[in-house]
Computed example of a mutant assay.
Amino acid sequence: MEKKAPVFFFAPFVSSTMRIEPAWIDHNGHMNMAYYHVLFDRTVEEGFSVVGLGREYTEERKGSFFAAEIHTLYKRELKLRDQVRVTLQLIDYDEKRIHYYLEIRHAVEGWVAATMEGLSLHVNMETRKVSPFPDDIAANLAVMKAAHARLKRPSDIGRIIGIPEKLEKHESLLALGTRH
């Protein structure tokens, strides 16, 4: 059941257009933070289906991938009936992990509403343990990474959460080799 690596991947992958739903709007009159993750999750599913990691892979080959870590930045409000598209950029992968970056963009005006950096683990669904990607999936990831390597590395990758002034002081002390 091995599949050949696709010849081409869009860089970055761009999701189908999605609309903000009424149930997603909170008492502040904008989309609740949880639903940004619904949009990110739909895009991860759609984007990595292209490399063979979709629903069929889980059903037929008993493999999947689970989120291990995410970092989200909320940049601009989304409101009822806004339309968005989400881009996905494969940053890196190894035999068991994929590191990726997403941006939710307003579908008409193009501004960025939120970004997410994620790390997911490949899982054997029968043992529920982290396991290596099959060779055909790894080959597809290599093709996708090569296409995405031409993109600029996102500036939001690897950010640290904290109050900016305190982070700067902490980083200065670390650079001097001083403990506080």
Score class of each variant (00 low, 15 high):
residue 123 V to R: 04
residue 72 T to C: 11
residue 2 E to V: 07
residue 38 V to E: 12
residue 129 K to M: 10
residue 5 A to W: 01
residue 102 L to H: 08
residue 172 S to L: 11
residue 136 D to T: 01
residue 34 A to H: 04
residue 95 E to D: 11
residue 107 A to Q: 02
residue 62 K to E: 13
residue 131 S to L: 07
residue 83 Q to F: 09
residue 120 S to A: 14
residue 113 A to G: 12
residue 30 H to S: 09
residue 18 M to A: 11
residue 103 E to T: 05
residue 138 A to C: 08
residue 126 E to V: 11
residue 143 V to N: 03
residue 165 E to G: 03
residue 59 E to N: 13
residue 5 A to I: 05
residue 102 L to P: 08
residue 70 I to D: 14
residue 174 L to Q: 14
residue 99 H to K: 08
residue 95 E to Y: 08
residue 19 R to H: 06
residue 148 H to L: 06
residue 106 H to E: 07
residue 104 I to W: 05
residue 18 M to S: 12
residue 92 D to S: 12
residue 105 R to M: 13
residue 10 F to Q: 13
residue 131 S to N: 10
residue 120 S to K: 01
residue 173 L to M: 13
residue 131 S to P: 03
residue 123 V to H: 01
residue 116 M to A: 14
residue 76 R to L: 09
residue 71 H to V: 04
residue 65 F to S: 11
residue 171 E to V: 11
residue 143 V to L: 02
residue 30 H to T: 10
residue 108 V to D: 13
residue 166 K to R: 14
residue 48 F to N: 08
residue 93 Y to K: 09
residue 146 A to W: 04
residue 43 T to P: 04
residue 47 G to I: 00
residue 17 T to H: 04
residue 88 L to K: 06
residue 180 H to T: 09
residue 133 F to A: 00
residue 134 P to G: 05
residue 180 H to Y: 07
residue 134 P to L: 02
residue 146 A to E: 15
residue 25 I to Y: 00
residue 133 F to E: 00
residue 94 D to E: 07
residue 100 Y to R: 00
residue 76 R to K: 13
residue 67 A to S: 13
residue 114 A to L: 08
residue 8 F to K: 15
residue 163 I to W: 09
residue 70 I to P: 01
residue 91 I to R: 07
residue 17 T to G: 03
